[in-house]
Nucleic acid binder design. Structure first.
Length: 559
RNA sequence: GGGCCUGUAGCCUAGCCUGGAAGGGCGUCUGGCUUCUAACCAGAAGAUCCAGGGUUCGAAUCCCUGCAGGCCCGCCA
């Protein structure tokens, strides 16, 4: 909530408290999110203590507080008393607060945060199932950055292990047909190698030998797998760039082996009091950690002494904490257990632990997405479709072709991101293409359109935004809009502390919706209250632009 | 079998942490462009908040027991 509004409500509550005390009543709890007004006094507990009807209490308290001058109205309703504060005398201060650069920003110390997101295996083009990761990760990064932290994003490139060996083998042995986009082309070689890995013993041996050489630290093979991954990644990065979700850094897993960090981790873990050995393989005994069943033995080497994926992950996180205060990982729900074990191992090494944000997988209407069953939707195809659709809608306008293409891109990609971000991450998500292609209602274009309308008013006004003068009392629509604008810091704060990005699109839709109602009810230019209204337009545009920015959605001035 | 996540109108979803009057959107029906952009706005219909029990003046929200769906349980990554 805006500080000015919060302070004002506190003042009023203080006065109400004085009144209830004089009546010898208990304090009335409040509801800050009432269906009507700014807050509601809840009369049920008092009713019980005073042995009176709650609606009588509500009526009495309404009468008592109605002449508090900071209140516009206090209306009893059932066992509630709905209070509307007087916005007229705080409006100027509230708008000035909103326009200040520090609005909604953190008041605490700035932290250096590394957000790892996406980190998909570089074995082929992104699926829709994985698309939730870069979009959420990127928007969380934008959110924390906006809030005031020092944020960088990183993609952990999985270029060791079986899949990396398979990819490298495929790329050096099979020709592929040029498909324009390199990841769509190279995936053929990977798929072919993958298939032969299962069917052909000689090839399987060869790939497994490569895998051992990787883990054993063979410089030449490490270079080969890294290069193969990079080639595939080149195509994948194009998709991320189009999505607006490219990471700042790419960290290759193979480097952790090459630079000896993995070896050091193994040595340190062996010194742990809970380290045990079985047939030459080492593990941490997690008996005391309340971990069920087989996972009590958390292996970090194989019996040949070589590292496992988890070992390398530990080394990676130790490396992260050398440079950052906090590490945040955006992970699929399949990594939950893994992530817990990683935390335990890091604690064992006296290191900080990363914070994890998990999302559930994206399903298709008929069931889950599966490469094997051929039930796969590529991110690239979805982006193409949705942009094409936006383009068709723009055909009715008289914009020039270049503007139209740019707009269609912004609308299409924005819609895709918005659609994914508006759902709580833990919730399973069925990707319905029809739904994603519906560009109405609670969607990116809805908010973009409100923003463009605000821009149009400011364009037509064609003067600098003036100081606010309140010539007339505020109307209902103006108060509603102001009330929503005042809620922005609270929204940001909650989104940050819960790492819940979906609060942002929820808010954006509410703001856009309130702006549209204001647009209908309140002509700006030439109105008696023009100075106030143009300021409301300008502040709304500003916050819409900011919230869309966090979502990674562009906010054009014309559409 | 064990662990974690999810269950809210025909469909999608917010609210759950911190108990207080069930919000949106899609779809359906009705009305609104000579007025700063109708990708908009207004109105209508549509909800045993998975089920049962408990705590409470009050439960979608907290606790317990079930049920259904997802994910995980390798010296793979």
């Amino acid at each position: 909530m805006s500080q000015i509004v919060t302070d004002r409500i506190d003042d009023i509550l203080g006065k109400i408290s004085t009144i209830t005390r004089k009546l010898n009543w208990p304090d009335l709890p409040i509801d800050l999110k009432p269906p009507i007004g700014d807050f509601a006094l809840i009369c049920f507990p008092a009713a019980k203590i005073l042995k009176q009807d709650p609606s009588d209490i509500a009526t009495k308290i309404a009468l008592q507080i109605n002449d508090i001058k900071e209140i516009t109205s206090a209306e009893p309703e059932k066992g509630y008393c709905n209070v509307v504060i007087d916005w007229n005398d705080i409006t100027i201060d509230v708008i000035n607060e909103i326009n200040d650069d520090s609005y909604a920003k953190t008041k605490e110390d700035v932290e250096k945060i590394l957000i790892e997101h996406t980190s998909a295996n570089p074995t082929g083009p992104f699926h829709m199932g994985r698309a939730r990761n870069p979009i959420i990760g990127d928007s969380i990064a934008r959110l924390l950055q906006y809030y005031g932290h020092n944020v960088e994003t990183e993609y952990y490139v999985n270029d060791t292990g079986r899949q990396a060996a398979t990819l490298a083998f495929g790329l050096s042995n099979y020709e592929t047909k040029n498909k324009g986009k390199v990841d769509h082309e190279l995936v053929e070689a990977y798929q072919k190698a993958s298939k032969l890995l299962e069917e052909n013993e000689n090839i399987r041996d060869e790939i497994y030998r490569k895998m051992e050489e990787i883990e054993g630290g063979n410089a030449e093979v490490l270079k080969e797998v890294k290069e193969s991954a990079k080639k595939m990644l080149e195509g994948m990065k194009v998709s991320l760039k189009r999505l607006g979700a490219e990471a700042n850094n790419y960290y290759h897993e193979s480097d952790l082996i090459a630079n000896g960090k993995v070896g050091k981790v193994i040595e340190s873990l062996k010194n742990s009091e809970i380290c045990k050995e079985e047939n030459g393989a080492y593990y941490l005994d997690l008996e005391k950690e309340n971990i069920a069943g087989r996972n009590q033995k958390f292996f970090f080497t194989r019996k040949n002494g070589l590292s496992l994926y988890t070992t390398r992950d530990i080394a990676y996180h130790l490396h992260k904490f050398q440079n950052y205060d906090k590490a945040l990982n955006v992970l699929g729900e399949d990594h939950r257990l893994q992530s817990k074990l990683l935390g335990i191992a890091l604690r064992e090494l006296d290191s900080k632990e990363p914070i994890s944000l998990f999302y559930s997988f994206v399903n298709l209407p008929g069931g889950k997405m599966s490469t094997r069953a051929g039930r796969v939707v590529y991110l690239d195809n979805v982006m193409e479709m949705i942009v094409e659709l936006a383009k068709n809608k723009l055909d009715e306008t008289d914009l020039n072709k270049e503007t139209k293409n740019k707009l269609a891109e912004d609308i299409g990609i924005g819609s895709l991101r918005y659609n994914i971000l508006k759902v709580q991450a833990e919730k399973g998500f069925t990707f319905n293409i029809e739904d994603a292609l519906n560009l109405q209602g609670d969607s990116a274009p809805f908010a973009m359109y409100s923003h463009a309308r605000a821009a149009a008013i400011i364009r037509n006004y064609s003067k600098d935004i003036p100081d606010i003068i309140l010539n007339e009392k505020l109307s209902h629509s103006e108060i509603r809009l102001l009330r929503t604008l005042a809620k922005w810091p609270d929204t940001v704060q909650r989104a940050v502390s819960n790492l819940a990005i979906h609060y942002i699109p929820n808010y954006t839709h509410e703001l856009a919706s309130n702006f549209n109602q204001f647009y209908r009810d309140c002509p700006v230019i030439g109105n008696n209250n023009e100075q106030l209204r143009i300021n409301l337009v300008s502040s709304s545009k500003r916050i819409l632009n900011t919230s869309l920015g966090i979502l990674g959605v562009k906010a054009p001035d014309i559409m």
